[in-house]
């Protein structure tokens, strides 16, 4: 009898099944949270190992004069001489004239190609957005250049633009136009390269296409009804709705342009930097310093300098992003 009463009392005093008391709530919640965290563990680890740690260590390396990367850590003394100091930064800013050439080449390239390719790919995307039959085939054709491996594209263009035996000069000659020295002359090397890169504007074009498709047709229809001409519709409706993509394309375009070196290497082969260093891109210089000269310290200093520049540019763009229109974004 007493036990029965005791058990009934115990039952009544116990919290109902649906509610949990405070400690239990906290405990389960922590486990629960950790469980969710486990899902993003790969990317967290990835960021730590492949982004955060290298950044910090890279800064550390940049203070060493001689470090070939074959030992675990650079040594503080080499042959009795101090290896640690701001030597690399001094070299970067004063002694090495190639740095400024590289910056000039890279920035010229970025300033010309990024806006040009944005505008051109937008126009092409507009064209591809028309509802004619067989548009799919054209889309594929325009995107094809993007998927060629860099080496093949380098082979192709190196042969095409060969100053002596290339087809380009042959075509120019048959059109009675003056021949050009293309990649063998300091003045024409960079423009040739820029023109070559514009061939691959399919990449950003695809993104523009998706953005254009996201412009609600209803808006356009109502604008048509209101009597807005095509140019007006373009400028006032389509472009503003595409600004998020523009933003994304601009940022990735600038960052990509400032880090470019693969296409140059595959184009020029053994003459990597071009005539008079006309194609000496900054990232190419970093690669050469790190893996041809095996001077890791200086390469890290160069890389950090580039990083600071890119960070400043990106911050600038972000701060002035008032012109980006977010629809129902987050």
């Amino acid at each position: 009898m007493t036990e029965q009463i005791a058990s009934i009392v115990a039952e009544e005093q116990a919290p109902p099944a649906g509610r949990r008391n405070k400690t239990q709530l906290k405990r389960r919640s922590l486990l629960d949270r950790l469980g969710w965290f486990a899902f993003i563990l790969p990317v967290v680890l990835g960021v730590l190992i492949f982004s955060f740690y290298p950044m910090v260590i890279s800064l550390y390396y940049s203070f060493f004069k001689t470090y070939t990367g074959t030992t675990n850590m650079p040594s503080f003394y080499v042959n009795g001489f101090l290896n640690f100091g701001v030597f690399n930064y001094k070299k970067l800013f004063t002694l090495d004239s190639e740095v400024w050439i590289a910056l000039r080449v890279t920035f010229t390239y970025a300033i010309v190609v990024v806006p040009l390719s944005l505008v051109l790919s937008f126009l092409v995307a507009l064209l591809l957005n028309s509802q004619v039959k067989g548009i799919g085939v054209f889309r594929v054709i325009y995107y094809l250049p993007v998927i060629i491996p860099t080496t093949i594209s380098g082979l192709l263009w190196a042969d095409f633009f060969d100053a002596r035996f290339g087809l380009a000069n042959n075509i120019l000659a048959s059109l009675r136009l003056p021949e050009s020295r293309f990649l063998t002359s300091a003045q024409t090397a960079l423009p040739t390269f820029m023109a070559m890169q514009l061939w691959t504007l399919g990449a950003s074009m695809i993104l523009w296409l998706s953005a254009l498709k996201n412009v609600p047709q209803s808006l356009i229809e109502s604008a048509k009804l209101d009597g807005a001409g095509p140019l007006r519709r373009l400028w006032k409706i389509i472009v503003p709705m595409c600004t998020p993509i523009l933003f994304y394309n601009l940022i990735t375009g600038i960052i990509g342009a400032l880090q470019l070196y693969g296409p140059v290497m595959t184009l020029m082969g053994q003459n990597g930097a071009g005539p008079d260093n006309a194609l000496l891109f900054y990232a190419y210089k970093i690669y050469g310093t790190a893996f041809a000269d095996w001077n890791m310290g200086y390469a890290c200093a160069l890389a950090w300098f580039l990083f600071v520049i890119i960070a400043a540019l990106t911050a600038l763009i972000f701060r002035t992003n008032k012109w980006v229109y977010y629809g129902d974004g987050e």
Binding site: P54, I251, T252, I255, A283, L306
Partner: peptide
């Protein structure tokens, strides 16, 4: 995670190479 898009590859290239080495 998103901001790693903006990290220039050159900065992490050397240490990651040494790490793999």
């Amino acid at each position: 995670a998103l901001s790693t898009i903006m990290l220039p590859g050159a900065v992490t290239q050397v240490p990651v190479y040494v790490m793999f080495r």
